[in-house]
């Protein structure tokens, strides 16, 4: 079950450096990171705060571009893209799941999940079909017309997962997905990620919690903007 990762590298990062200028000083958030992630891998990126894991996530998620180095996602060189093109890549290839859910409060569940398809220019009929399917997939078919504030935290995160999946992204990128949930609900959400992985989805978790990272099959630890360790933990998963 855990050997389905293909040889095809979906994400290739080479010598990525990210430097921020804060006033007079330069902050080196990433100091030369190289990394390959293949299709259907289940990866946890860990590290203490200040290690550069948020910066790496932003770059992987195409919310930011590296100062130097290259990043190719599904064959596309991200560093050279314009803002609009990056938006398009995020739209088509990346499904974000955030710690704080980040649903749009005024819109109902259906509309929240539908949104990526709208920005992707998918025609109405197909939008409806795909949105309904994604919501059913996370078990909230009876909540479609509800607003986010009418749902529990776990349900909201499931909506966020539905939104992340609705456009069949190349990777699901989850940033502390259980950070705002109690442990029981957090476990439910993690089981959902496990299922997604077994159905073939590539998943990248960004977390500082070991028990969350243990769900993944590979753990990358960052420290001071560099990769400290990169280990496969398939055995742990099996246990």
């Amino acid at each position: 079950m855990n050997n389905r990762a293909s040889d095809r590298s979906i994400l290739t990062i080479r010598d990525v450096v990210k430097t921020y200028q804060m006033g007079e000083t330069y902050v080196h958030a990433l100091r030369g990171v190289s990394l390959d992630i293949r299709s259907n891998e289940y990866v946890a990126i860990m590290g203490p705060s200040g290690s550069g894991k948020s910066t790496l996530m932003n770059i992987i998620g195409c919310l930011d571009v590296p100062t130097s180095g290259t990043y190719s996602l599904d064959g596309q060189m991200v560093a050279e893209k314009s803002e609009s093109e990056l938006a398009e890549i995020r739209n088509r290839m990346i499904g974000f799941v955030f710690q704080t859910f980040n649903l749009i409060p005024r819109a109902d569940i259906f509309h929240n999940v539908e949104l990526p398809l709208i920005y992707g220019g998918v025609p109405r009929q197909e939008r409806r079909r795909r949105t309904e399917r994604a919501i059913e997939q996370v078990g909230l078919a009876d909540r479609m017309k509800h607003r986010p504030n009418e749902l529990s935290g776990g349900q909201r995160q499931r909506v966020a997962i539905a939104r992340a999946l609705v456009f069949n992204p190349s990777i699901v990128l989850a940033d502390e997905p259980t950070g705002n949930l109690d442990s029981k609900t957090g476990d439910e959400i993690m089981r959902m990620f496990d299922e997604l992985h077994s159905s073939g989805q590539t998943i990248i978790l960004v977390t500082h919690e070991d028990h969350v990272a243990q769900h993944a099959l590979r753990t990358i630890r960052l420290r001071d903007g560099q990769i400290e360790s990169d280990v496969r933990n398939g055995d742990v998963q099996a246990a």
Partner: peptide, 15 residues
């Protein structure tokens, strides 16, 4: 924040 969310899931500046 809403703008951030919309951008993250694919809204272009034009949108």
């Amino acid at each position: 924040r809403e703008i951030g969310i919309r951008k993250a899931i694919g809204a272009k500046p034009r949108s």
